[in-house]
Nucleic acid binder design. Sequence first.
DNA 1: TAGTGGTCTAGACCACCAT
DNA 2: TGGTGGTCTAGACCACTAT
Lengths: 262, 262
Amino acid sequence: MTTPLGGGDGRQNPRQTIADELRSAIEQGELPPGTKLPSGRELARRYTVARNTADDAIKLLQAEGLVDVRHGSGAYVRRRRPLVRLGSNRYSQRLREETGLSPFLLEAARQGWQAHVEGGPVQRVQPPPDVAERLGVDDAARSVIRRENWYFADNEPVQVGYTYIPWAIAKGTPLTKPGEPMPTGIYAYLEDHGYTVTRIREEISARMPRHSEAAALRIPPGVPVIEVLHTSINSDDTPFDVTRFMLRADVMGLDYTMSVEE
Amino acid sequence: MTTPLGGGDGRQNPRQTIADELRSAIEQGELPPGTKLPSGRELARRYTVARNTADDAIKLLQAEGLVDVRHGSGAYVRRRRPLVRLGSNRYSQRLREETGLSPFLLEAARQGWQAHVEGGPVQRVQPPPDVAERLGVDDAARSVIRRENWYFADNEPVQVGYTYIPWAIAKGTPLTKPGEPMPTGIYAYLEDHGYTVTRIREEISARMPRHSEAAALRIPPGVPVIEVLHTSINSDDTPFDVTRFMLRADVMGLDYTMSVEE
DNA sequence: TAGTGGTCTAGACCACCAT
DNA sequence: TGGTGGTCTAGACCACTAT
């Protein structure tokens, strides 16, 4: 087949061509957020390609996070939702005491979201290697308590956290029991027993969600997760809690303010 | 067509079935990193499906970031490369002076990477709204200087940064000229002129790369970017520089340690 | 009920890789 | 040169949505 063009640049893939044109229409604002894209069949007609090919173009945009596809309805330019930004002050004792809220609820409420937290199972387990290393704990069986928490905004799950506390610390306390003492966070409790969050370390990475994570957090295609490995450090420089958070990156972000040591 | 199974669970999509089995083989370690997956044609034979279908299964894994596909060769389980973690101390004056290195070079070198930075164009421009807001600058034309920097590790681009400095500050200084004064970073220069990084704010999000970013940073499918909106704050609480970084999330991460205010 | 996306088939040609 | 991925076609059936 010959290339019919007379004025433009060289031809490439039909699939890419279609995706490129839709993409730039989106980026230029010609297709504003919420707009419905032409249907696969319609694109196939316009570009004189098989429907497969047109659909593949839309799948590309979906993987790039540009569109949401609704079965039976159409593909729509994704609306950029404002992020809930978790601040670095979220471990502040004072904030907690004044509001009685856990960090997540605090930030979410401040930003106008209907937020709640649900506790999951609490188990005595063997810590993952990276957690064990940061806790300075044996990589041995049952050396830590693992607590699971799910965070919701407007009734959608947006974050999960797995908290690991050395058994030596948690032993015989309510920290080993589910449901407790979540309302104001476990930190209020730990504080009363000599563990104050003096410093924190947060190691941040991003990746595509695992299949199971995508299902559990209802993460749409084209949306990554932010993984935060958080370590709480006591005034005597001992780490006493490590939490691995997974955040839906389309609704959650982080916001740190910190002073720079010389 | 009937479902031939006798012992297992219910059937679903061939495409999903194939992806599920490969995925769990990868997650179980039966297919270790670097292993070559069966070819599309081979999978098609094994599962008695069309080649399209088998290929689609592999594309799913690719979009999840689990495999790297090499044209003409095969699909391989992705090796997890260790991250270069940029620390919160990277704006430390002392570190800079002792080593003479810019933050990125410092961290990368410390972690055994062959690193270098390339400066891009320097222009006087109108700042993006979010940058203008953080700089406390007019959203007007030509109110800031924009500097562009590309960061390489082992000769691969892994990070871009766009730095915005108010024209009022940069006017008549080497900050308006390209190539300068990069070797030790612009911060050394600013410091000598009354702008010391006393506090920083970093707003973090993650998303799939834009098409152009993916091309420029050579980001493979299934890999997101981390976007950091960095603000440098002077001792008098004035912001004097905003930089937007884009990091390839498969090789770059962040590592903050900070004290918690009461 | 008409239109839309989801998926699959069977066959084809091209580009790239490795031997 | 044979195997592999990349892409495309033309047609089909199903599941879901909207009216």
